[in-house]
Nucleic acid binder design. Structure first.
Length: 706
RNA sequence: GGCGAGGUAGCUCAGGUGGUUAGAGCGCAGGAUUCAUAACCCUGAGGUCGGGGGUUCAAUUCCCCCCUUCGCUACCA
């Protein structure tokens, strides 16, 4: 028996948890934690809210509340919904608490005193009026590539380019709106370039057995050569840097957040927490692919420098991303299925969510959640295969034996479920239980669950083959054999379900009228390292009260969820809603069957649109594109290039000279390498033919439309 | 632009140190059945494994190029 420290990525407390988080991190982590506990391992399953960092402060400013208010709100929402779903954390902590502050400061100080950091001076933007340095995100300006005026210092959200604050044109402070000045500051850097040479190359070199997406990503970073990375920031919201002369500085969230795993452990076990992070304890991080560098490079580097016997991660089973109805899940665009809402809107369907998300877990590549697929999986797999098998066995038992296990002699051919003549491990364990255990130990949760379901399929097949409802009329002995075998399958299936669907498992066990001790479960789950055990109910055992294990999901429930997402897509697209290429991706996920009326929008939303009349002064076909025309437009004194997907409807020469309606402030977008600076609005006929929207009398190019 | 991970049946995904008929679930078609939440069981149709070149007796599996999706990262302006 060993200690296993299992961590699940700390959810960032600026929004609730959604199905992507669950499928990628929390459900697999929970299954793993449950299995290891069942196997009798000493497990600590650690998580908590990550409550520092710039996006939280931005959100707080936007809402006019304090950062603490924001994190308090989401910490509660997230924690409550995890608890209700049954994620079996031993502790769900948070990084704004005292233990964490103390421990992360001590960690920093320890490294500081070892001389692990490099002190580096640099010039950063400083807001004189607000009296503070500005994080990249706090600087707003014009994007140098797309001219979007609302670009942030680290990224332009319109065109997606990665920026540094000094690249921004017309930088302004998001705090005061004033023009920031450059001012010298000092921060402490982790010299990752040196640590790569002395430690990371070799350590990561030994991890080729990790998942290919994880190992490949790490290799990629190492090949490019790591660079020193600042572990402190000039910011107010965070853990203060615990050394003299560091006023107004906090620990970098990615320095401090992983330490949150340790401080949560300490909070839970003040006396022996260190045993879970040193010695022969085994550390496993469950994360999403966006966290790989922090958990596979930076945090291990920190732990290594710390020394003191700290263990390094044994396995980092990072998953890819889950898409929703054809689009990336996005917190800011509200394109998500939020756990807290799911729990309310789909009551008593926790295990259904666990099951579906496990079966589509993005273990090797991005995967896709759709509500229709969810419905199908629940109805045909959980209800049709698993629930149905349970129900028919229990109903037959009730009908023929009033729920009491009948006397069965030696099961004879052809009714035997498995071969009883061999001397080795039990064939059913070898064929079903052990493969599930092995797959789980190998972090292949999706396959493990599928293998579990195969046992239910086998049960249905066995019943169909031997038809006890016919046998009962002719052969009482054989009927007893068949139903007995079927009950044993169901019993073991109930045990096998536990890590995946703990509630359904426990319901089924109680319908079988059994309660299984931890020791018995252990001998079941140790199949592999030990022979394992096939559980059987004895003659005379009385089953419990039967009931349906899962309920079918009707179409209207699913339709309501889809409609909800459609409404989200519609409002997101409201600003740019018209025919044309650029909007396609926004609404492509769910296609409305007919042209439906769109939800009402506020005037303010409409007023955001800069609509202009423009004159086409040149037009040519875009090479290697069937549908695209490149138009040059006169808009006032300005000339603009717009790429429009209308080549199937118009020849270039027939467009020149026309006046068109232009959405002038649509985010630029590159198509076929040409940047399109706006969108031409068209009417679409019933037969799909496009028609220009032109003023009835010619007006000056650039005239605004409202 | 560079790097990493993908691109496999209508859909969602497995798999492949190169070698007879490439898999599963769902969906679809046909059959069988009634113990069961019109569920279950059987059978079948469906893929030149992103495209093009190369190595080889043989490539979907190895090499090169290209297209494409996702992610990481750079640079230019």
């Amino acid at each position: 028996m060993s200690k296993i420290t299992i961590t699940a990525a700390l959810p960032y407390a600026n929004g609730p948890v959604h199905i992507g988080h669950l499928a990628g991190v929390y459900i697999p982590a929970d299954i793993h934690a449950r299995v290891q506990r069942l196997r009798g391992e000493e497990v600590l399953f650690i998580c908590g809210s990550d409550e520092h960092g710039v996006p939280i402060t931005l959100r707080a400013r936007k809402e006019g509340v304090t950062s603490q208010d924001v994190v308090d709100r989401y910490h509660k929402i997230i924690g409550d919904s995890f608890k209700e779903l049954g994620i079996s954390f031993d502790i769900y902590s948070r990084t704004s608490n005292a233990t964490h502050k103390e421990l992360s400061q001590a960690f920093f100080k320890n490294l500081y005193e070892k001389g692990a950091f490099k002190e580096i001076r640099s010039e950063q933007y400083f807001d004189e009026q607000a009296g503070q340095f500005l994080a990249d995100r706090y600087i707003v300006g014009t994007c140098p590539s797309c001219k979007n005026e609302g670009a942030y210092g680290d990224q332009c959200e319109k065109c997606g380019s990665t920026l540094s604050p000094t690249e921004l044109l017309n930088p302004k402070s998001a705090l005061s709106g004033t023009v920031p000045m450059m001012k010298e500051t000092v921060n402490w850097y982790l010299p990752l370039d040196e640590i790569q040479e002395t430690f990371l190359n070799e350590w990561l070199g030994g991890k080729s057995h990790w998942k290919s997406n994880v190992y490949g990503q790490c290799k990629s970073w190492l090949n490019e050569g790591l660079r020193p990375r600042a572990m402190t920031r000039d910011l107010e919201w965070g853990v203060p840097v615990p050394i003299d002369g560091a006023d107004g500085k906090v620990l970098y969230v990615w320095f401090e957040a992983p330490i949150g795993y340790i401080s949560a452990t300490k909070e839970l076990r003040p006396d022996d927490w260190e045993q879970w992070w040193t010695g022969d304890s085994r550390l496993v991080h469950f994360i999403g692919k966006d966290n790989i560098v922090f958990h596979c490079i930076i945090f291990p580097a920190m732990l290594h420098l710390r020394g003191d016997g700290y263990v390094l991660p044994e396995q980092v089973p990072a998953n890819e991303f889950l898409n929703l109805e054809g689009q990336k899940i996005s917190t800011s665009r509200n394109w998500a299925v939020w756990l807290n809402e799911y729990l309310v809107e789909m009551p008593n369907r926790k295990d259904e969510l666990r099951y579906v998300l496990t079966s589509i877990a993005p273990e090797t590549k991005d995967s896709e959640f759709t509500w229709k697929d969810y419905q199908t999986r629940v109805n045909s797999e959980l209800v049709g295969i698993l629930g149905n098998f349970a129900n028919r066995v229990l109903v037959l038992m009730q009908k023929y034996y009033e729920g009491v296990m009948p006397a069965v002699g030696t099961v004879r051919e052809p009714y035997a479920l498995f071969d009883r003549s061999g001397a080795g491990d039990h064939p059913m364990v070898v064929d079903y239980v052990r493969p599930v255990v092995d797959l789980l130990n190998n972090y292949q949760f999706r396959d493990a669950q599928f293998k579990m379901m195969e046992l239910a399929r086998l049960g249905n097949k066995y019943l169909a083959e031997h038809e006890p409802w016919k046998l009962v009329k002719t052969d009482a002995e054989a009927t007893a054999m068949v139903l007995s075998e079927a009950v044993q399958v169901l019993y073991n299936l109930a045990l096998l379900m536990e890590p995946f669907m703990p509630e359904a498992s426990s319901r089924l066990l109680s319908q079988l009228g059994v309660s299984v001790s931890a020791d018995d479960k252990q001998s079941f789950w140790l199949a592999g390292s030990q022979p394992g055990k096939w559980f059987e109910l004895a003659e005379g055992h009385t089953l419990g009260a039967a009931g349906l294990l899962f309920q079918k999901i009707e179409d209207d429930v699913i339709d309501a969820q889809i409609a909800k997402l459609q409404a989200t897509a519609a409002s997101a697209a409201a600003l740019a809603q018209a025919a044309g290429v650029a909007t396609d991706s926004v609404v492509a996920g769910i296609e409305a069957k007919e042209e439906e009326a769109k939800p009402e929008v506020a005037y303010d939303d409409f007023a955001k649109l800069d609509l202009r009349v423009a004159t086409v002064i040149a037009c040519e076909k875009v090479e290697k594109a069937d549908k695209l025309l490149k138009l040059t437009l006169q808009v006032g004194t300005e000339e603009r290039t717009v790429v429009s997907g209308i080549a199937l409807h118009f020849q270039p020469e027939e467009v020149v000279g026309k006046q068109v309606l232009l959405l002038a402030n649509l985010a630029p977008r590159k198509m076929r390498g040409i940047e399109s600076q706006g969108m031409i609005l068209m009417a679409e006929d019933a037969d799909g033919k496009l028609v220009f929207m032109s003023p009835s009398n010619s007006v000056a190019p650039g005239s605004s439309v409202s």
